[in-house]
Amino acid sequence: MIDLSLHILDVATNGFKAGATYVQIKIVEEENDIKIWITDNGCGMSKEVLSQVENPFYTSRTTRKVGLGIPLFKQTCLQTGGSFEITSKEKIGTTIYALMYTNHIDAIPLGDLAETIFVLMMNPYECDILADVTFKDENQKPFVIDTKEIKKILDGVPLSDNAIATWLKEYINEGLSK
């Protein structure tokens, strides 16, 4: 993965496979680090699965023998001296917490977060997405978008409608641009 926004997309889509109806992403950018929380209300994991999930040679899939999303994200954090934690409870959901130091030589850029949020919102599983971003520049207004709110406004018109999707993409871009 070349940037954090791709890790966020990758790990957040795990929630869809877990049957989540709500995935919440919180990003707090500070002077020397970025903190990320990704929480889903999917099926969660048992202790056995949880103990294996950071192992690249573990996957719940039967079509192949590796699962790289979580271990890659973890490595990205740890190589900057940061941390990475997963907590999960069966039938409740899973939360991932990632801390990456941005002033470390091995830190990777945040990347196109707008495109990540947009693509997540366009998921075909009817899963709602909340994104909450706080910037290191105190003068910049935090950006919050929640498809639950958006769907209320849309009142039955799908998010994926071409005109709606285009508008949302621009709205997210604007909200995140510095």
């Binding site: 993965m1 791709l6 997309l9 990758d10 889509t13 699962g67 790289l68 999303g69 890659l72 196109d112 495109e115 990540t116 947009f118 693509v119 366009m122 071409n162 005109a163 999707a165 285009t166 993409k169």
Partner: peptide, 21 residues
Amino acid sequence: ATCGITAGARPVLAKFVEMVS
């Protein structure tokens, strides 16, 4: 998935949405 995302699937999806619109 992880494989698609690392290979550049995200901008491809965004481009399809943009062009279709």
